[in-house]
């Protein structure tokens, strides 16, 4: 359905925006390395089914590969900045202070409690859903402390938020047309959307109302 495709495309757009900008400008200002690392973990644990070769469609398989590849590439590019611009890299690391063990640990426990089947694949899948729902927190934490957001960060988080928002009408659509209600995805998806709403709140309060920021 249209919501799902648009959702996937804005998800893809968010990663492309990030990738292209970092590649072109060699700037990582305002980007949380921890959030990016969490996304690599999210994609790798969610798309483990690629290894079973029970592929659903060309679209599904290609997108999964692109998401894993692009998220790894983002990390590579950030690491390259380390040698190119050590000062900027150090500055980013100094501000990227969120303790991710407080996210990974609880998500692992939640995956053990809430899953469809007690198999490695299903547990990893559930873990990835929980982790995705909170993976943006180090980024939001960084943003809320600095009160400044670069154009890159703003566009990136906006596209990500749009992807999450579009998945909600997709679930409603699928409920009515297919009778499908996948509770785990819906719950973690709503949780994630709530966190993004918080971003837009911070964005409004600190960035738009704050000084020293030019709207893109």
């Amino acid at each position: 359905n249209i919501f799902r495709i648009l959702g996937d495309l804005s998800h893809l757009a968010s990663i492309v925006i990030l990738l292209r900008t970092v590649q072109k400008t060699r700037q990582v200002d305002g980007i949380s390395l921890k959030t990016q690392l969490l996304y690599v973990l999210v994609f790798c644990t969610r798309y483990l089914d690629l290894l079973t070769f029970r592929w659903k469609s060309v679209y599904n398989t290609l997108m999964k590969m692109v998401f894993i590849g692009a998220s790894v590439r983002v990390i590579q590019l950030i690491q390259e900045c380390k040698t190119r611009n050590a000062v900027a890299y150090k500055d980013m690391m100094a501000r990227d202070t969120f303790q991710i063990k407080y996210l990974v640990g609880p998500c692992a426990i939640l995956a053990l409690v809430f899953n469809y089947k007690f198999t490695v694949l299903e547990l990893c899948w559930s873990f990835s859903l929980w982790l995705e729902s909170v993976a943006i927190l180090p980024q939001l934490f960084m943003l809320s402390r600095s009160g400044k957001a670069g154009t890159l960060t703003t566009h990136y988080i906006f596209a990500l938020g749009l992807y999450r928002a579009l998945y909600i009408p997709n679930w409603i659509w699928r409920y009515y047309t297919e009778g499908r209600l996948e509770k785990l995805s819906v719950f973690t998806g709503l949780l994630q959307t709530a966190l993004y709403s918080d971003f837009f709140y911070i964005y409004y309060k600190k960035v738009i109302k704050g000084a020293g920021f030019e709207l893109p």
Binding site: R4, D8, H11, D49, K56, N60, M63, K64, F67, Y116, K117, E122, W125, Y167, N170, R180, E182, K183, S185
Partner: peptide, 10 residues
């Protein structure tokens, strides 16, 4: 009990 659904979303 919840029946297992195919994970066909990204």
């Amino acid at each position: 009990t919840s029946t297992q659904l195919e994970h066909d979303e990204l």
